[in-house]
Design a protein around this nucleic acid. Structure first.
Length: 301
DNA sequence: TAACCAATAT
DNA sequence: CATATTGGTT
């Protein structure tokens, strides 16, 4: 019985983006093929999820007297764009059997995960349920199932860490480092994002959340952009063994490959508290020789 | 009914 | 191993 959650009325606050800003979902995660297949008109209103009309989030604050998140600082057009354009099944024509189309596995990139964590952190453990998280993330294409699955894993990760920091004895080893990266075999993606401190106990009312968070999403019809660009995020399914060598010594990540505009950093703190993200050398070896490089341009967001 | 969660399957 | 999918509850 977890029906106790009925207080969130009080919280939520204006932190949440107004319904209008919220759910601009149209960020193009839908591949052109998919869109066509689904008969999705270009205009906003296309949610691939056949089971979830994008409706306003829970009880919308009757009166948002306040303010909502900054208009849009750097609002990165976060889109979980899958790769598309590419070989299709048998049917060269590709004009018909759209039904029964399966989406490619979603790849949780550090960026996406970060958004995920931010959303969870801002919502508070209590309200951090798949649906809400999904809505807050505003990442088009993201489905509740996607988030639910990831959330499950994330919770396990948190639990593991909690048990590790204070327990004692058990296992020996380890060393506790609290926020430090735990074992190489345990964290992959999760370690790349800071874990909100208060993820275990009910968020203290006094303690508001932190971070500004910018759920806003672009309102551009990236459809055109996506169509024009061959690939925004070709993350079909490719283990990150090691990306090709920098063509000219310049990194080019599939993610930031788009958004070529004047990116200004809002009130960026002088120092970036973000984790430096260092990779352990021996740890990789201990795992069996599989070194996963999850490096990323920490310069985003 | 729809959403959550945990377990299971790919 | 990371996600997706399913089953059982609420």
């Amino acid at each position: 019985m977890r029906e106790e959650d009925s207080n969130w009325f009080s919280k939520w606050e204006d932190e949440l983006p107004s319904p209008d800003e919220l759910t601009p979902l149209s960020q193009t995660l839908i591949t052109p093929d998919l869109a066509l297949a689904f008969d999705i008109p270009t205009p906003p209103h296309a949610n691939p999820s056949p089971t979830s009309p994008p409706r306003h989030p829970p009880p919308t604050p009757t009166n948002h007297s306040g303010h909502l998140p900054p208009p849009s600082s750097v609002t990165q057009p976060i889109s979980a764009e899958f790769a598309d354009s590419s070989e299709l099944g048998p049917n060269s024509g590709g004009d018909e059997p759209a039904r029964t189309l399966k989406r490619p596995r979603l790849v949780w990139t550090p960026q996406l995960h970060k958004r995920f964590v931010d959303a969870v952190a801002h919502l508070g453990i209590k309200n951090a349920v798949p649906k809400t998280i999904m809505q807050l993330m505003s990442v088009d294409g993201l489905t509740r199932e996607n988030v639910a699955s990831h959330l499950q894993k994330y919770r396990l990760y948190l639990k593991r860490m909690q048990g590790l920091s204070v327990g004692g004895g058990g296992g020996g080893g380890g060393g506790g480092g609290l926020a430090a990266s735990s074992d190489p075999a345990t964290d992959h993606l999760f370690a790349s994002s800071p874990v909100p401190a208060h993820f275990l106990h009910p968020v203290r009312p006094s303690s508001e959340h932190y971070l500004p968070f910018v759920p806003v999403a672009l309102q551009h019809h990236q459809m055109a952009a996506a169509a024009g660009h061959p690939q925004l995020q070709p993350q079909y399914h490719r283990q990150v063994g090691h990306f090709g060598p920098p063509p000219n010594g310049q990194f080019e990540h599939p993610f930031l490959s788009r958004q070529a505009g004047p990116i200004h950093r809002m009130g960026a703190p002088i120092h970036n508290p973000v984790q430096p993200y260092v990779e352990d050398l021996e740890s990789a070896n201990a795992n069996g020789g599989r070194k996963v490089l999850t490096l990323f341009p920490t310069g985003d967001d």
